[in-house]
Nucleic acid binder design. Sequence first.
RNA 1: GGCGCCAUAGCCAAGCGGUAAGGCAGAGGUCUGCAAAACCUUCACCCCCGGUUCAAUUCCGGGUGGCGCCUCCA
Length: 462
Amino acid sequence: MQIYNTMTRKKEELIPVHPGRINMYACGPTVYNFFHIGNARPFIVFDTLRRYLEYRGYQVTFVQNFTDIDDKMIRRANEEGITVKELGERFIKEYYTDADALGIKRASNNPRATGHIGDIIRLVETLIEKGHAYATPDGDVYFSVRSFPGYGKLSGQSIDDLESGARIDPTEQKRDPLDFALWKAQKPGEPAWESPWGMGRPGWHIECSAMSMSILGETFDIHAGGQDLVFPHHENEIAQSEAATGKPFANYWMHNGYINVNNQKMSKSLNNFFTVRDIAKEFDLEAVRLFMLGAQYRNPVNFSRDLIEQATAALARLRTAQERLAQAQTGAETPEDADFMRELDGYKTAFCAAMDDDLNTADALGVLFDLARACNTFVSEPRGKEAVQAARKLYDELTGVLGLIVQKKEEEFPAQAVDLLEQRQQARAAKDWARADAIRDALKDMGYTVEDTKQGPKLKKL
RNA sequence: GGCGCCAUAGCCAAGCGGUAAGGCAGAGGUCUGCAAAACCUUCACCCCCGGUUCAAUUCCGGGUGGCGCCUCCA
């Protein structure tokens, strides 16, 4: 499989540290609020990568953290009048609600920053010992950027260009404007932990270094996140981690593009963001997932209601094909069955080729729609059991890799609707078309459509 | 100023040297009591100008337009 590596700025063959295993880390949410669909993109994209790697037989350890202590957490907790811990607990729970609805598999491990304070302190101590960090009289600890020669290698920035743009906060006691905080001394009212430098809390960047290395080892395969994390977050992670261990940190760096609204980045200040929770009130979140996978993950995509509606229609097509496969009639085997099964292999190969090419889900989705058409055609008449089952298996596999239509919902309909449907059948049997159509209209008003199929009428939610 | 990304049909979006996947929407048809779904058919001078090449949407140079990072941010 080829993966675009931000570090080298080209696609590279994915070669794991340990054959057959992939250790990957994705930067997760700061749990101070519901997450918006911009946040959702990396969750969905890297979940899909994880699913695909597993499909290809890798044993994957997928770690995604929760940042549950930082400035935003503290500010929000104060606004709400609750503790930072309570705030974190709440939005971790809310995260899972939305993530589950988006078809995101639970990570192998969801470490919390506050659960790794010991690892963080040890890492900071190491950095001080090796001369890469220094404590100030106030009890802050800073990383000395100029002590790490490779600084800037991920973002392609030269240290001197950065220097010219850097500002220094007069309250900070940095030796160099580029230096960043590893440990922050406690301010009144803030949560704090004991450390060799007094009471305080970790800086943002060090959390990810400590969590990833303590779980995945000093060198692991893939580190992923949003494009905006390239600098400074990931650059700083590399500096801290490699300065401490003297070993390469992550071998592949993957970054997803943004979700935009009207071609502008979604952001709080522009007030143009949509939370996943709000979208869920109106749309099936699986459509949001399909929407995200409809573009290559590195490209920016615009978000709009119209696009989610388009995705909803496309998703319905995939679902219909699945239902038709599930209900397909089997019959005598024919030579065409064998041809069709060979055709199935072709779809699988094409799907994998697309995914192998830096997770080209848009292309893979194209293959999936081709497969859906082929299956729809194939099962339009009774077919040999073996071929039908092979089709079902492949269809479920490929949709499963994309995390789409994995949960087959057996819809519950109100008794009244079921009753009307029955009455309509009686009217149709009596060829009372006017009455049948009137009932269909009544059902439509209730929010259901009815489709007459060979297996009888079917209700569907509008 | 430094670093980087993008420009393909009405709307999305792959392809990235050999003459344009797929989805949504639209049009015509098959099926259907009528619909729906499904299936068939149909719908693109690939932002502009140069260059390289037998051949460029695809590579190179220059424009034009849009966006991002350099400050918390997926």
